[in-house]
Structures are given as C-alpha cells and as structure tokens.
C-alpha cells in the first residue's frame, strides 16, 4: 500500500518538475528534460516532498528511477 502511494507520488514529482511521464525502467537522459541538472531538480524536489536529505554520495550517484525510488523508500 505504502509502496504504491510512494510510487505514485514520485512519478508526480517527475511530472511536476520536468513535465515527463516516467516508467519504472527509465533512467537519466531517456528524456530531453531529464539531464544532469534535471536530475538534481528531481532530487531537490524529493527532499522537499518527502522531507528527507540525500547524502553527497547519493546526490551524485542516483540517476535512474528505480535507484531513486529505492533510496526514498529506505529513508
């Protein structure tokens, strides 16, 4: 239940921030808007939306939907 809710909310983050509809297997550069800066915007938005904080390492290494989803879920 929680996983489904989180998934929905995360996809909304991608849509709000970059105006793209992501699927679970998407990763960075699959869309024009999802470039490196776009990726940072996603992560910054996630921090705001889920009230979490990424470490520096996570901040630079997370760059696919599943990875982001995994870390957000963990936190």
């Amino acid at each position: 239940m929680l996983v489904k809710y989180l998934d929905k909310k995360l996809k909304k983050v991608f849509f709000d921030e970059l105006k793209i509809k992501v699927k679970n297997n998407n990763k960075i550069y699959d869309f024009r808007a999802w470039d490196s800066l776009g990726n940072f915007n996603i992560l910054l938005r996630c921090e705001r939306e889920f009230k979490i904080k990424f470490t520096s390492k996570e901040f630079t290494s997370l760059n696919s939907y599943t990875e982001i989803q995994k870390v957000v879920k963990k936190k």
Binding site: D16, E17, L18, A33, L37, N41, L44
Partner: peptide, 9 residues
C-alpha cells in the same frame, strides 16, 4: 552562480 533555471520554483 547556477540559477538552476529548470527548477519548478
């Protein structure tokens, strides 16, 4: 500095 111009803000 970087404006992060693509941010939704």
């Amino acid at each position: 500095y970087n404006n992060i111009s693509t941010n939704s803000y």
